[in-house]
Write a protein that binds this DNA or RNA. Sequence first.
DNA 1: TATTGTTATACTCTATAACTATA
DNA 2: TATAGTTATAGAGTATAACAATA
Lengths: 143, 143
Amino acid sequence: MDYFPQLVAERPDIALCRASTAVARAAEQAAAANGVAVGSQLVLKMLAAVGPCSQQVLSQGLRVDRSMMVGIVDELEAAGWARRERDPADRRAYAVTITPSGRKVMTKSERTVPAFLDETFTALSAGERSQLTKLLGKLLLSE
Amino acid sequence: MDYFPQLVAERPDIALCRASTAVARAAEQAAAANGVAVGSQLVLKMLAAVGPCSQQVLSQGLRVDRSMMVGIVDELEAAGWARRERDPADRRAYAVTITPSGRKVMTKSERTVPAFLDETFTALSAGERSQLTKLLGKLLLSE
DNA sequence: TATTGTTATACTCTATAACTATA
DNA sequence: TATAGTTATAGAGTATAACAATA
C-alpha cells in the first residue's frame, strides 16, 4: 500500500504521471455522470467559446489527434449536440457547429466542474490549487 | 498550434494530463538513452534502496500492477541486472535481488536524472520545481 | 503539391480473470 | 481460504500511414 517514498520526492516526472492517471479517472467518472465523455465536453466548451470551426482547429486547440476527433464529432452529432456543416470558404473542411441542445448539455456539465475539482484536489488549499494551475500552465506553454 | 487557453486556465485536471504525457515521453527517451526502461530503472532504484523484496512489494511501492511487474523483472533478469531468488520464509514469493551489474546501471542512469529534469522542467525555476514536487506529493499521498 | 476528413493498422497500457503453488 | 507469481484476453489511447476530395 505504501509508496516507495523517493519516487515522489526525487522524480517530479513520475509524480506527475501518477497524479495524472488518478485525476483522469476521476474526471472521466465525473463527466460520465453527466452523460458526456471528457473529450466531448471539451469540444463543446471550445465550440461555445470560439464558434463554429473545423475538426482540424478543434484537434489542435485541444491537443487531440485529428483522427480521434472524427469519433468525438461523430458522437456529438449522434447525440444531436453538434452538426457538421460545410465551410463555404473551404469545402474540404467542416464547420462544426454546436446546437442549442449541445449548449444546454455543456452548460449543465460545466456547472459540475467546480465541485469535481474541489473533490479531486481536496488535499490542496485554494491557494495551492491555483499555484498548481499556474505551474502546469507554464510547463505546458513551454512545450 | 495554439492551445485553447481556457483549457489550461480552468481545468487543472486536463492540464495535469497534458503535462503528464509530454513529460512521460521525455522520461522514456531519457531512460532509453541509458539502455533502460523507466519501469526497470525505478525497480532497480527501489531494490537498491530497500534490499531484496517480492514482486508484490515492488508493484505496490511503485504503483504498477503485479501482472506487469512480471515482465519488468523478466527484463531485469535477462539483462543480468536482477535475480529471482527464493524467499526461504515464504516459498510462494521471490526475493528479487539486484546484481552488482544492476547496481552499476542504476547508478549510471541515476546520474543522468538531474540533467533530464533540468531540461524537461526548464520552464520552471528551481523554486517552482520544488513547489510543484511538493504539491504533487500532497495530491498523491491523499489518494 | 498540400490539406481536410476518414479509415485501418499496430502498439502500448491498463484491467480483469483465471490458473499453480504455496501458505 | 487467501496470497504470490504467471498467463491470457480485452479495452482504451496513441501513432502512423494511406486514401478521396478539395485547395
